[in-house]
Design a protein around this nucleic acid. Structure first.
Lengths: 214, 214
DNA sequence: CTTGACACAGAACATTCGTTCGATTATAAT
DNA sequence: ATTATAATCGAACGAATGTTCTGTGTCAAG
């Protein structure tokens, strides 16, 4: 609630409400600063980040006047809309570490239409790809991927796989072949690798890839 | 009434309404120009002056995004969850027809987190890919793509392009080279095609690809 | 045919804009 | 006392922004 906000942030929020009421577009960082007596645009940016983190507003990065206030409606609103999935966003997937289990900060989520998914929408989580090491899965730096917590997948399904040796995460189609696992890149011009079964940890099945082009 | 406005001004007004609906702050002159295919910021300013003179909006001089629509109907209830975009779903994209302009049935939409997008979230629509003819764009049958209504793109951006000759839709990166347009597949193992400029119709810029893997 | 108004267009410019960087101070935890 | 984090701050920067200026083309009125 507002009472929990530091004074400066309360003043920023109040100013935003008043400004939007009368202007119908948001103020710039400098207008906010002039209104509350702060000259530093980076400090205003810091306050807006704080307000965003606490759920009072949403910023649009690198855009003039890029913010919207969040109006506090009933938190049941989303639950009343069963056609939307709210999928926990846990951070980044990189080659050099296992996939995150808990979110790095706060309660971030990705909202997607249920219609984009199959029948099973349990245990989903979202990660952003960092680096080019997933390129053999035809997955690029910056893509968002949706996975389901699963420790085993069906033959031919793509999974995020942690290899104890050499200590890396990879995205590949998994085939169990006796005591070995064949890891097949999605890129057909690349060959598979074979790994002892006990060296492989499936960390989640990839169910969706979202590529932004801008 | 809208019917009295010249075409360009009508398009500006429509764009403003849509933009404000989804962003809650007004566009810049350049954003308006990009949306309606006009490069000249002075012409956009001229159109806004015309719309102001006719009572459709009020401008704030020398201010970034300085305009408010004059609302003639009852004020719309702002969406409770600005962080979710509801994007009209218009059906399928196939090689043998132009992309659909109206939905095939009802008011279907795709809900996606705004955080998955860049600053410009106006004029978006969703299509599902039918058939394998977009594979040279590394886009598969069944993928969902999100496009923005644009009649022109920047060099290197991927667009849904209708070719009058031979009468097909393709997804390619577009480069304007003199009187010709180079259409470059995303698949690096494939070569470009060159088409006369007047044979090409950009039907929308591809801003996202969503691949379901199950 | 000439003229003026309107519609359209691009380039250049000064100013505004948000981010980044580096810094200091205050506070909390160890 | 030390360390880490949060809060605070100003300067500089590259990019974005709207305005101004100049120009062309179209059309209607005289």
């Amino acid at each position: 609630m507002n009472a929990e906000l530091p004074t400066r942030q309360q003043r920023v929020r109040s100013f935003l409400e008043e400004y939007l009421e009368s202007n119908e577009y948001p103020p710039t960082l400098r207008e906010i600063g002039r209104a509350i007596g702060v000259k530093s645009t980076s400090l205003i940016s810091y306050y807006l980040d704080q307000l965003e983190e606490r759920g009072y507003l949403v910023r649009q990065r690198s855009v003039s006047r890029g913010l919207r206030l969040v109006r506090r409606d009933s938190p049941r609103e989303l639950k009343a809309r069963p056609e939307i999935l709210s999928i926990p966003y846990l951070g980044h997937i990189v080659a050099s570490a296992p996939v995150p289990i808990e979110p790095l900060s706060g309660d971030e989520s990705v909202e997607l239409s249920r219609a984009l998914f199959g029948a099973n929408t349990a245990n989903l989580f979202a990660l952003t790809v960092k680096g080019d090491s997933m390129i053999d899965a035809l997955i690029h730096d910056g893509d968002t991927i949706i996975l389901r917590h699963q420790e085993r997948v069906e033959n031919g399904e793509m999974a995020a796989v942690w290899l104890d040796e050499p200590g890396e995460t990879t995205l590949k189609k998994v085939y169990y072949e006796g005591r070995q696992v064949r890891l097949q890149p999605a890129n057909p011009s690349m060959g598979p690798i074979y790994v002892p079964e006990d060296n492989v940890r499936v960390q989640g099945k990839v169910v969706m890839v979202i590529r932004q082009l801008e």
